[in-house]
Amino acid sequence: MSTPFYVSPQQAMADRAEYARKGIARGRSVVVLQYTDGILFVAENPSRALHKVSEIYDRIAFAAVGKYNEFENLRIGGVRYADLRGYTYDRDDVTARGLANVYAQTLGTIFSSVGEKPYEVELIVAEVGAAPEDDQIYRLPHDGSIVDEHGAVAVGGNSDQIGTYLDQRHRDDMTLAQALKLAVDSLGRDNNGGERRLTAEQLEVAVLDRTRPQQRKFRRVLGGALTRLLESGAAEAPASQDAGADEDSTEQE
């Protein structure tokens, strides 16, 4: 019997992490940021059919970057987990923290089991609360760790640079239009400092809106509503804070 070629555990994990990170870095980014009335999700995604941002439950949404088939599987798993939990207990007992834990365990087990290919995904699970201080945003990197985030967070290809840009400019009291403008500006920045202008057709935008009367707070901002919101964000001077408020009640999904 031949002796297997020895690879130190450190090296094996570093290789797997490197593999996953490279896969994630190839994709375009997603940014998630808090604004006065909820949490905004913006992805650069020209596809209308393959979503990077989706609804999980009443107050919980999911955003992901990386390999589509892998995060789509995790999304479906999350919807099943949430619906089953809500059915067995109560709708209020489904929390982002519980879901993030399950995702972390799943990603962590896959990452460290030698027989499986590590998932090339990075997830965000966010829950909108009754007040801004109750909002929760969790970032789940490929290795199964959980990072509790506040304010604004970016994942995907250029996330470091976008994250820095967001951190410097994000305020908790932004209106939806202001937050969207900041998100779009940040996504338009590329590695070597250049800027692109992203149009409504290249964006996937959704919000968890705490002011929504329905039980399900998730809403996609589509078509004309998105164009109007982008325009009002661009026109808005930093001085006027509430001009975006009436734009929040844009058309339903």
């Binding site: 789509e72 599987n73 995790l74 479906i76 798993g77 099943r80 987990y81 619906d83 089953l84 059915y87 834990n101 399950v102 995702y103 365990q105 799943t106 962590g108 087990t109 896959i110």
Partner: peptide, 24 residues
Amino acid sequence: TGRLPAAFLTPGSSSFLDFLGSHA
């Protein structure tokens, strides 16, 4: 490990009833 059981990550059915039927 607390990992999602395989039934949760199996693609295919969009029905919650089918999922319940196979998992619980």
